[in-house]
Design a protein around this nucleic acid. Sequence first.
DNA 1: CGCAGCTTTTGAATCGAATCAACCCTGCCG
DNA 2: CGGCAGGGTTGATTCGATTCAAAAGCTGCG
Lengths: 340, 340
Amino acid sequence: MGRVSFVRLTDVAARAGVSPGTVSNFFHNPSRVAELTAERIRAAIDDLGYVPNDAARALRRRETKLIGHLAFEVANPYSAEFVRAFDREARALGYTVLNVSSEGDHELQRTLIETFVRQRVDGVLLTPTGGVGETVDVLKGHGVPVVLTDNLDGAAPAVAYDDRLTGRLAAEHLVNLGRRKIAFVGNRDGVEIIARRLQGVRDVLAGVPDSSLEVVDLETRSVASGRVAAQRLAALTPDRIPDGIVAVNDPVGIGLLNVLSHRVRVPEDVAIVGIDDIEFAAEAVVPLTSVARPIDDFAAQSLRLLHSQIHGDATGGERSLVVLEPRLIVRESTVPGTAT
Amino acid sequence: MGRVSFVRLTDVAARAGVSPGTVSNFFHNPSRVAELTAERIRAAIDDLGYVPNDAARALRRRETKLIGHLAFEVANPYSAEFVRAFDREARALGYTVLNVSSEGDHELQRTLIETFVRQRVDGVLLTPTGGVGETVDVLKGHGVPVVLTDNLDGAAPAVAYDDRLTGRLAAEHLVNLGRRKIAFVGNRDGVEIIARRLQGVRDVLAGVPDSSLEVVDLETRSVASGRVAAQRLAALTPDRIPDGIVAVNDPVGIGLLNVLSHRVRVPEDVAIVGIDDIEFAAEAVVPLTSVARPIDDFAAQSLRLLHSQIHGDATGGERSLVVLEPRLIVRESTVPGTAT
DNA sequence: CGCAGCTTTTGAATCGAATCAACCCTGCCG
DNA sequence: CGGCAGGGTTGATTCGATTCAAAAGCTGCG
């Protein structure tokens, strides 16, 4: 096997006694190469340990088979799960994903996007939680196809779960369990996705006469914030202490659980519902009921959409918005004895 | 700003009325370019919205400024935290990191490594838990610098935390708290790193007369496995039920906590120590005491070592093994009232 | 034997930036 | 006034693979 990586396609050609063009055909138009020749080339390739140079290929071909993925909120395990799923899908189509995260730093985000452009990625997936208008514009300015997730403002084609329905499913579940004093825990700092979930909760409670809604704002959507929120809820006057809580995502739900399970009975006194159904939810102190947003589908659709953008298969042109349906997973944090 | 990304260096040169060589100098030898000329070039660049093409640059320069990072065990949050830290360090030196994970799939791993070679990454960081001999050989065969973490078998330069000491710190802490019936929970399937941690625990107990050690084997090192282990421990005969547990990592520790905290008092009846000190540890049902392996240092050293491998700064040649010191973080899972 | 119609193979041109030897000026010194 | 140093600039060549028009081989048929 190979020496120190200075093997070029030309070397393979020489060794196999053919022209470089033929070796190239061997890779890209195998049908045009005679079996006998192919055999010789194959031999030459692994005698020399040849591995093609993608930079050269990309230069000539004007496509890199790279996809840029800019994620925010990497702290959230859901994000990590998404990356895994998306990577897998992308690999199946021959793409390599460049995963980066801006950690909410605007300046850094600019830099990362520029890196994508320098690398001439074939397309970019943005998994943000805030505004991305400017970023989308920059990419479009460079002719780079873009797809968004969880963002339906129409700046670019997008895939998203129905947030309002998500909120509704959670609230309905609690109401059906007889809970009336509901709390919604999550930060609202202009994040559309959360406003919509809250709206879904409101939709449901509007139809339940004796119900009440308490909204608890958070700094972040982390386990730590969930804990803080729990303290705050516990400090409320008795009549306002909720018997049902919708957490904006699972980490927050788990934070709530970790603190509340010391003080009250879950779910008897307080039932808690999370959102996302991260792997961890099922393993919490009290297994957490959650509105699942199945990730394989999410990732697959995102890639499909991006891929069609890249190939200009104008499937409905710019207006492609894919909306997925979440579904409720019931566990012990709302219904006792649901254990496996 | 830029049209549809077909702007070449040559176009900038034309627009600025200079030769391509000068524009190139503008980027790489700014001192050689007269200020007046530089001004014109600068103007041309943002008139046209020029962004250099890294593929072309890489081809000519024979360096890509890309680093490949193959991780295993992505499920573990520690892994995610490491990626963030390593990325940050790498970016500071102008590298872009290609993060991938083989999910334990051997065949896939081969493919991913080949991708690194095709991309002609400048170096590779391997963050494995199992054998990597073959992988290291392949990369070396292609002349790609490699650095390992948590693997001191000498196949390549490496950075690691002192595992034996890690085990010792955990065990000493428990013994100092008066615990004598110790359990070690973790899978041992040939993973060196774990064998060493266990050895550290043994080192300590060997010096404590009336102590005993129970080893619980796991399938994986996840929260779920921790839960399973908890069931198994609880089922032991009373005289073997431990009063101190060392979990092979934090997720396992949290799984143990999540189940045990329902049945016994933690830490009064059982004290639990995890390893890694992931962010989540502090937020568990009962904040988890953990042997921290500070990640910033880990990432920084890994990059430093890889960078010096890339530049052939033979700092001790092939024999560079960097060993870091873990430290104990005490929380309520071992000492009550440690809360903040 | 010649030729149409395939299948294979060839090799020069090309992608976009980096490199570097050669060249052009200016100014200064002897 | 000629020579020289050195700051600025030039542009042909190169990196490694892909492309494609054209050439070369081959078959079978009249």
